[in-house]
């Protein structure tokens, strides 16, 4: 009976733990060499520490059952001395391994990378693709696309408070600090839609500040990049655009190809091509867009997006327009 209970318990713990090994936001589901290094470090630490823990518990049980240790004082001293030595060696080895991984992760050479500036805002991510040719740079938000098997160089900074970039499937955490440029370099070698989240408490909507990192083959990436470089395509009906430009929307948002050039909110030039809105808070659907425009503060209280007074007809036209920005 007891053995079955124990087996069930162990199974349950393993099932719960392995649930974290899959998924788009798990450090144990590595999608690149750096993340694989970190995952390996985790499993190695886990194995060593588990072995130590089992040894300690076994010794404890042995002591409980035997009550009296059948050895003399001075051999006891020798055993304790040996165990202290073993502990010191294990700690040194583990420390050395984590230093080695750290220097591998942060000491990479720069090889013709895709360079992306990531700026943290309360509560969304501004993404700017850098290029030596100014006509090849563009700005987007909350969705990073990267090509497979090519070094990605992320330059991180913030416009207000400290945020932290963390896409566990590709790299560890790195802070975004106002006035400071941090940099990380990594490679993604497995395609996927990966999720990341702000990992430093940054205000009311910290929990609703996530981003997607989409790793795709170089051809798809090039196609995406070219489509993002374009100005917005002329909309089917000009009504929605007129409303966008005539209302406070244009004060904070940019839509390239129109006079709207605000820099305070996310760039909406290709808004309809993204998977989510409001920094990963809602999936991009017609209903979500309309709901977000009409009442952003019930979805994301405290966000800087104000509720704009619109008639139902205006809301529908604006929703159509935004959805069509692909």
């Amino acid at each position: 009976m007891r053995r079955r209970l124990l087996a069930t318990g162990v199974l349950f713990v393993f099932a719960a733990a392995s649930g974290g090994c899959r998924g788009a936001q798990s450090a144990l589901n590595p999608h690149g060499p750096e993340a694989r290094e970190l995952a390996w470090l985790f499993w190695f630490f886990l194995a060593i520490l588990a072995a130590v823990w089992f040894a300690v518990v076994a010794a404890l049980l042995f002591a409980l059952i035997r009550r009296r240790f059948p050895v003399r004082e001075h051999s006891m001293t020798r055993i304790v001395g040996a165990l202290v030595g073993a502990t010191a060696i294990i700690l040194l080895v583990l420390t050395g391994l984590s230093y080695r991984t750290q220097s591998q992760l942060y000491g990479q050479e720069v090889t013709a990378p895709v360079t992306i500036h990531l700026t943290g805002h309360q509560w969304w991510w501004e993404i700017e693709y850098e290029s030596s040719n100014p006509s090849q740079t563009f700005t987007t938000a909350n969705e990073i696309h990267v090509p497979l098997n090519r070094q990605i160089r992320l330059k991180l900074t913030s416009s207000d408070v400290i945020h932290s970039f963390w896409v566990p499937t590709v790299f560890g955490k790195m802070d975004l600090i106002p006035g400071v440029k941090n940099e990380i370099r990594f490679t993604v070698d497995k395609p996927g839609v990966l999720r990341g989240q702000c990992a430093e408490f940054c205000g009311f909507q910290h929990a609703h500040m996530s981003l997607l990192l989409i790793a795709e083959d170089p051809a798809t990436f090039a196609k995406w990049r070219n489509s993002q470089l374009r100005s917005r395509l002329p909309p089917a009906s000009s009504e929605g655009e007129k409303i966008f430009l005539g209302k406070p929307c244009a004060t904070c948002h940019t839509i390239r190809g129109t006079p709207a050039g605000g820099r305070f909110g996310p760039d909406l030039t290709h808004f309809g091509s993204r998977k989510t809105i409001a920094a990963g808070t809602l999936l991009l659907t017609r209903g979500a867009i309309a709901g977000w425009i009409v009442d952003p503060q019930s979805t994301k209280p405290g966000a800087n997006m104000p509720a704009v007074d619109l008639t139902p007809q205006e809301t529908l036209a604006l929703t159509d327009y935004l959805e069509g920005l692909r």
Partner: peptide
């Protein structure tokens, strides 16, 4: 009170 949400209009 921090009132984030004011009903429109």
């Amino acid at each position: 009170d921090r009132i984030f949400r004011t009903p429109p209009g």
